[in-house]
Design a protein around this nucleic acid. Structure first.
Length: 342
DNA sequence: TGTCCACTGGAAATAGAGGCCG
DNA sequence: CGGCCTCTATTTCCAGTGGACA
C-alpha cells in the first residue's frame, strides 16, 4: 500500500504482468495438470514419457501448464533435460532441430548454410543423456511434419505437443504418424470461466501491484477478455501502466475502459513493427479499406509495391498477418474477405 | 440443379544467398 | 577463386471450395 504519497508507485513487480511469468501455482487446471504429470511421470525413472497433446484455444493455459509441469519435473529430476520450441518462430525442420539441440549444448559448430538437417538429427540421435523432454508449441505451424516422426523415433526423446485444434492438426498429419500417436495422452483446454479469470487477475494484482482491486473492476477486465487469460492480463498490465503515477487510489473504472482497447493496440503495434515491408503494405491496405476482397487486395498491392511478389506469396503473408490478429479472414472460397480487426 | 470461376492452401520445384574446401 | 553444398523464400502447379447465376 502506498500511503501519503502523491504519485503512487503502483506496480511492485512488473514481471508478474508479463506473458512469460510463471506462477508458483496454476489454478483451475487440476485435471489437466494431473493428466500431464501422469504422462510425464516415467521421466522420473529415466524412462520415455507418454507423448502428450495439449489442445485448446489461445489463452487457455496450455503453454503455461506445460512450462509449469516441466519446472515441477525439474525439481524431482535433477539432471532433466528439456527444451521449449515455438514452432511459429522455428517452423522449418532445421530451425526446430537447431533449437532442440541448443538445450543439450551441441550447436556451437553448426552453421545455417552448410550443415544438412540430417546432421542435426544425427546429433540428437547420438544424445545419450537422461530422458529429454521436447515441448513443441504451435506444432501445427511446422512446415514439415516429418520432424514429429523423427522425434518420435529418437530414443531418449519425449514430446509434449501443443496446438489449437486437434482436428486440424490430425487432418494434416499422415497416417503412419496418426496411428503411432493415437495412444498418446490428449488433454483438452476450455476457455476460462468468468470467475476463474477474475481469480487469476486477483492473484496477479496481489503479487504484482500495490493496490487493492475491487472485484467489479476485475470482472470488467475478465468480461472483456472473453475467456482468454493472456488478453485479460494484457488489459490489466495496460491499465496498471496507465494508472501508475497518475492515480493515487488504485485503478479506476475509466482507466480499465480505456485499457481494454489499449491492450489490443499495444500488442498489434508490437507485431506490426516486426513485419517485412511487403507484409506491412498488405497490412496498410487492409487497414485503409476496413474490408477488402482478395482481388482488390492483390491489385492494390501490385500498385503500391516496386517488385510485387506472386499472389501465392501474398496469401502466405496474409496467413501470417491473420495469425497475429493484424487482419481477419471471413468466409472461404469465393466468398473470402479480409478485414481490419477492431 | 449444374456450370462457372474467383479464391484457397498444400506440395513440389526453383532461385539465390552464403559457408566450405581444394 | 570456383564448384559444391545447404537452407530459406518464393514461385509454380493444382485439386478443392463455395458463391453467383442460368
Amino acid at each position: 500500500m502506498s500511503v501519503g504519497t502523491n504519485t503512487s508507485n503502483m506496480i511492485r513487480d512488473a514481471r508478474v504482468l508479463q506473458d512469460e511469468f510463471l506462477p508458483r501455482e496454476v489454478g483451475h487446471r487440476d485435471q489437466e495438470m494431473n493428466a500431464l504429470t501422469r504422462a510425464l511421470d516415467p521421466v522420473t525413472r529415466n524412462e520415455p514419457a507418454e507423448t502428450a497433446f495439449l489442445f485448446g484455444p489461445s489463452g487457455t493455459g496450455k503453454t503455461c501448464l506445460a512450462r509449469f509441469a516441466l519446472a515441477r519435473l525439474r525439481e524431482a529430476v535433477l539432471d532433466l533435460n528439456y527444451q521449449y520450441v515455438n514452432c511459429w518462430q522455428d517452423y522449418t525442420r532445421f530451425r526446430a532441430l537447431y533449437r532442440i539441440l541448443e538445450a543439450i549444448g551441441s550447436t556451437a559448430d553448426i552453421h545455417r548454410q552448410s550443415t544438412p538437417t540430417d546432421a542435426l538429427l544425427e546429433r540428437l540421435e547420438a544424445y545419450d543423456g537422461p530422458e529429454f523432454v521436447v515441448v513443441l508449441d504451435e506444432v501445427d505451424q511446422l512446415q514439415d511434419h516429418d520432424l514429429l516422426y523423427d522425434l518420435y523415433r529418437t530414443v531418449g526423446v519425449s514430446m509434449v505437443l501443443i496446438a489449437n485444434s486437434e482436428e486440424e492438426l490430425f487432418a494434416r498429419l499422415d497416417n503412419r504418424l496418426v496411428s503411432r500417436l493415437h495412444a498418446s495422452t490428449r488433454i483438452r483446454f476450455e476457455k476460462y470461466e468468468l470467475d476463474e479469470l477474475v481469480s487469476i487477475l486477483d492473484d496477479r494484482v496481489r503479487w504484482g501491484l500495490d493496490v487493492e482491486a475491487p472485484r467489479d473492476r476485475l470482472v470488467a477486465i475478465a468480461d472483456a477478455a472473453a475467456g482468454d487469460a493472456r488478453v485479460a492480463i494484457g488489459i490489466l498490465r495496460s491499465a496498471a501502466r496507465q494508472a501508475e503515477g497518475t492515480e493515487v487510489d488504485g485503478i479506476g473504472m475509466d482507466t480499465i475502459r480505456t485499457a481494454i482497447p489499449a491492450g489490443r493496440t499495444e500488442v498489434r503495434r508490437r507485431n506490426v513493427e516486426q513485419l517485412t515491408p511487403h507484409q506491412r503494405v498488405l497490412y496498410d491496405i487492409v487497414h485503409d479499406h476496413g474490408t477488402v476482397t482478395p482481388g482488390e487486395l492483390y491489385e492494390e498491392y501490385r500498385e503500391r509495391v516496386e517488385e510485387p511478389r506472386s499472389d501465392r506469396t501474398v496469401r502466405n503473408h496474409l496467413s501470417k498477418l491473420a495469425h497475429y490478429n493484424l487482419v481477419e479472414k471471413h468466409g472461404d472460397g469465393r466468398g473470402r474477405t479480409y478485414h481490419h480487426p477492431e
